Computed example of a mutant assay.
Amino acid sequence: MQRRAVLKDVKTKSSNRIKVISDYVLQILQDRKNKQQIVQQNLGCFNKDNDLVNCTDDGKPIEPRNLLRQFYRLLEEADVPKITFHDLRHLHATVLMALGENAKIVAERMRHSRVQVTLDTYSHVSNEMQRKSANRFEDAILQN
């Protein structure tokens, strides 16, 4: 059974949201969109219906299986361990927590209903943050 890309509305109103991204990622996406428009014009394709950035040259959604092939190829080229596509979500949250980002911000980015869900899910990072905090406290006390 082959999966196919299907465009549909989100399940709930709260699922329809703006995802804030970095200026760097925004620039990459804008550059990609501009290149796609040039390719589509050269091919004579003017498929504006989907308005996708991650799509085939003619503007159609990428088949999920092809997207995974591209993803795994990029992981191999980058010489990093193979992970699932969904693992990117956990990687994002884990790195933010390890950097000391406010748990409320991480919870909002993950669309968790409560901050406690985020803290419970990423408690291993919280423990590392606790250790670092204890060491900073000790350093401050011992230096005085």
Rank of each mutant, 00 (worst) to 15 (best):
H112Q: 05
Q40Y: 04
I21S: 10
S22I: 07
D31R: 14
K8C: 15
Y72W: 05
D9V: 00
R111T: 04
N34T: 14
T121W: 04
L26V: 02
M110C: 10
I18V: 15
L43P: 00
L75A: 09
L67V: 00
L142F: 11
F46I: 01
D57M: 07
K48L: 06
E76F: 02
K19I: 08
K13W: 03
T94C: 06
F71W: 07
V125K: 02
S14I: 06
L74A: 13
C45R: 05
V6E: 11
R65M: 12
R17T: 01
L29P: 00
N47M: 11
D139W: 09
H124K: 11
M129H: 02
E77V: 06
E108C: 02
A78G: 04
T118I: 05
N42C: 08
Q37K: 15
M129Q: 11
H86K: 14
D79S: 12
P64S: 15
K104P: 01
S14H: 06
K104M: 09
K82T: 14
I28H: 11
Q30K: 15
V10T: 07
R4Y: 15
L99G: 05
Q27N: 15
T121Y: 05
I21A: 14
Q40E: 13
R17E: 04
K60L: 08
N135K: 10
A93L: 05
R89Q: 09
N47F: 06
N50W: 11
M129T: 04
I83R: 07
L142A: 11
A78P: 02
D120R: 08
D57C: 07
F85C: 09
I83M: 09
L96S: 10
I105V: 15
L7I: 14
R109H: 08
M1D: 08
L74Y: 04
V6Q: 10
K104T: 12
L29V: 06
I83S: 07
G100V: 04
E108T: 05
S113G: 07
L142G: 08
T118D: 01
S15A: 15
D58G: 01
D87T: 12
V25C: 09
V115D: 00
M129P: 02
R109S: 08
R69N: 13
V10H: 11
L43Q: 11
R32K: 14
F137R: 00
I18W: 06
R111I: 00
A5I: 03
I141V: 15
V20W: 06
V39C: 05
K35T: 13
D139I: 13
P81L: 01
L26N: 13
Y72R: 14
D49C: 02
V80Q: 01
I62W: 15
V53Y: 10
L119R: 02
A93P: 11
P81F: 01
V80A: 04
V117A: 06
E76H: 08
A103Q: 05
L68C: 07
R89M: 09
D51S: 08
D120H: 05
L26H: 13
M1S: 15
V39K: 08
K8F: 13
L91I: 09
D23N: 10
D58F: 07
C55M: 04
V6R: 12
A93Q: 03
D23V: 12
T56N: 14
Q36Y: 07
A98Y: 03
V95H: 10
R111V: 00
H90R: 11
L142K: 14
Y72A: 10
